[in-house]
């Protein structure tokens, strides 16, 4: 290959890539395109996958239950098996009902509407470098970008990229996540910053001399206009003051067991939902 051709072969793709990147940063066309094509296609694949996984788990649990059974009578054995299958199914349903009841029992938030959703995938690919999950709701259900997502125990995160039927949620543990909070007892403000899935949350800008204690609950302050006021976010696990520091160093742990979340509610303001529905 001649030097000029070699330079062209390297430079041309680079220029095209940078051009695409800049164009997308300005217009967001590629973001929207991939959200509609890639995300929605993958979402439709993940949804039955979750159902299969649940079915497989139930089957496995039933098998384990049956290993210890020593019944001589074949009829009784069959009956026990049938009953165990029923119990396994009912216990799964009961657990789901409990989780849904916990969601329904959440106190109403003035000026916000709720939309139920299921988590269809967690860490679905190598590109999800920020902690996130995928929900089975999208523009078609009136869900828009930056909508707060709440589990029964507290705040899970907010939607970032929304396709027609599926949406990405940026979790509170993600390194770019910022949630303004206030401590429930002392009413001390701060900002909860994610540091990654296995790291504690960093609570920044907590003023010196303000009363914050280990174990205290942090709830959303509503100061950013994205999250409604009063949703539990995290519980304080450590408080310290560095020498010459302007703020207290506070660490916290999310109140939501992120890996175990299956059902959530997406919060949205009625006017935003109406605009989305009108745009369909």
């Amino acid at each position: 290959m001649r030097p000029r051709a070699l330079v062209l072969a390297v430079l041309l793709p680079l220029v095209v890539y940078v051009g695409l990147y800049t164009w997308n940063a300005k217009t967001g066309v590629i973001d929207r395109l991939t959200a509609v094509l890639g995300l929605d296609v993958a979402g439709w694949v993940f949804r039955p996958g979750r159902a299969l996984e649940r079915g497989g788990r139930e089957l496995w649990e039933r098998y384990v239950y049956l290993v210890g059974v020593r019944q001589e009578n074949e009829d009784l054995r069959a009956e026990v098996r049938a009953l165990q299958e029923q119990v396994a199914q009912l216990s799964e349903k009961s657990a789901e009902a409990k989780r849904l009841a916990a969601l329904l029992a959440l106190p109403p938030l003035e000026g916000w509407e709720r939309r139920g959703a299921r988590v269809v995938a967690q860490r679905p690919g190598p590109g999800m470098v920020l902690d996130g999950v995928i929900l089975d709701v999208g523009h078609a259900h009136g869900v828009h970008e930056d909508a707060p997502v709440q589990a029964a125990a507290g705040l899970l995160g907010r939607t970032t990229r929304v396709g027609r039927f599926f949406a990405h949620v940026l979790l509170v543990t993600a390194p770019v996540s910022r949630v303004p909070v206030i401590s429930q007892e002392g009413r001390v403000p701060g900002v909860v910053c994610g540091q990654g899935a296995d790291e504690p949350l960093d609570v920044r800008y907590v003023p010196l001399g303000q009363p914050v204690a280990v174990g205290e609950l942090l709830v959303t302050s509503g100061m950013d206009g994205v999250f409604p006021r009063g949703i539990p976010v995290a519980r304080i696990t450590a408080v310290s003051v560095g020498e010459g520091a302007l703020f207290q160093k506070v660490e916290a742990r999310p109140v939501v067991p992120i890996d175990a979340v299956e059902e959530v509610v997406v919060l949205q303001r009625p006017q935003a939902a109406a605009v989305e529905a009108g745009g369909q």
Binding site: P13, Y17, L20, Y21, N24, I30, D31, T34, A35, L37, G38, L39, D40, V41, A42, A121, P124, G125, P126, G127, M128, V129, L130, G132, I134, T160, G163, H168, L170
Partner: peptide
């Protein structure tokens, strides 16, 4: 690339990876 872009946190990462 389309599927991986749809699942990714930032646009054009999968494109760069595939290229």
């Amino acid at each position: 690339t389309l599927v991986q872009e749809g699942l990714a946190s930032f646009a054009l990462g999968a494109t760069l990876a595939t290229a």
